[in-house]
């Protein structure tokens, strides 16, 4: 039971991070209908900008932890968002309206290019970071096994929930959210009704990139190491999460992320750590066989 609770906490933390990345996939897919393969790389760039900002703040002398984290988040979100915008502008916008596979290939190319770009300019070595937030709260103890939730885990989960709430509000209530939903339903019609489609899509990429940056900073603090290759697997799993939850659905992405995180944590704990990725993809396949549009996805209507 104690072991189970501990794994539950770990799984939820991991799931929050996947969920944050998955939102970027799901929003882009909802509006543009493409898999943004470079999104994992955007997350990796967010993590790198995060680690650079941490070091910079250390050099400047800002060491009060809450302020430092807040500054790092803001800086990383901003610059990562610029990257997300630029990727859309360079690789996807010229391909809007061409056939379905073109943006996918362009996205794969972008992903390869960004990964190697970061490898060249930042070096291929693993970047370590000292833990910023230490300490944890003991929750329960039995048979000499203590269940802990660390402050960092609390920060990650709370921040994820807060961001989810904010973004749900943006999409449900603001003018931007309305135009996003309009573009999702019918891009041509939306543009006829005066929605600036290009701008809306750009902002969607910016929002997705900002959330990925938060995930990147969180991962940097949580694991304490990053390298240029972290984007690939995280992106893959986040996309799996988005599909699992039903692509195009925001709560679905979060749910999918949480599920993937939990599956991974429990599988590593109870079965084998080597095959945790197999478990994740295996469960995805099983879910899709029975629910071809994911858990919360809308059934696709086939039109002739």
């Amino acid at each position: 039971m104690e072991y189970f609770t501990q794994q539950l906490i770990n799984g939820l933390t991991l799931g929050s991070i996947y969920g944050l990345i998955a939102i970027g996939y799901t929003m882009v897919y909802g509006i543009v209908g493409m898999i943004n393969f470079a999104h994992g790389e955007i997350y990796m760039i967010g993590a790198f900008i995060g680690i650079i900002t941490f070091s910079l703040l250390g050099a400047v002398g800002i060491t009060w932890v809450p302020l430092a984290i807040l500054l790092v988040l803001i800086v990383s979100m901003f610059f990562t968002a610029v990257h997300g915008w630029a990727v859309e502008r360079i690789a996807y916008r010229p391909l809007r309206g061409s056939f379905r596979l073109a943006p996918l290939i362009s996205a794969i190319g972008m992903s390869i290019a960004l990964q190697n770009y970061v490898q060249i300019i930042q070096g291929a070595k693993i970047k370590p970071m000292q833990p910023v937030v230490r300490g944890n709260i003991p929750l329960m103890e039995a048979n000499g096994f203590q269940v802990n939730i660390s402050y960092l885990q609390i920060i990650i989960i709370v921040l994820t929930i807060a961001l989810m709430a904010i973004f749900s509000l943006i999409i449900a209530r603001t003018a931007l959210g309305r135009s996003q939903r309009a573009c999702e339903q019918d891009r041509t019609m939306a543009s006829l009704l005066g929605v600036n489609v290009d701008r809306t899509i750009s902002l969607t990429f910016v929002m997705g990139a900002a959330l990925a940056a938060v995930a990147g900073v969180m991962v940097t603090m949580y694991y304490g190491v990053i390298d240029f290759f972290i984007g690939f697997l995280a992106g893959l799993k986040a996309f799996t999460a988005a599909v699992l939850g039903g692509i195009g659905s925001l709560p679905g992405a979060m749910l999918g992320g949480m599920l993937i995180g939990l599956i991974e944590a429990f599988w590593s704990a109870y079965f084998s750590i080597e095959y945790k990725d197999v478990a994740v993809f295996g469960i995805l396949v099983v879910v899709l066989i029975f629910l071809p549009t994911g858990l919360l996805g809308k059934p696709e209507v086939e039109k002739v």
């Binding site: 360079i90 391909l95 073109a102 362009s106 190319g109 972008m110 960004l114």
Partner: peptide, 10 residues
């Protein structure tokens, strides 16, 4: 290689 993929596609 990656950049070429993007450019050819565009």
């Amino acid at each position: 290689f990656g950049a070429a993929m993007v450019l050819i596609m565009v």
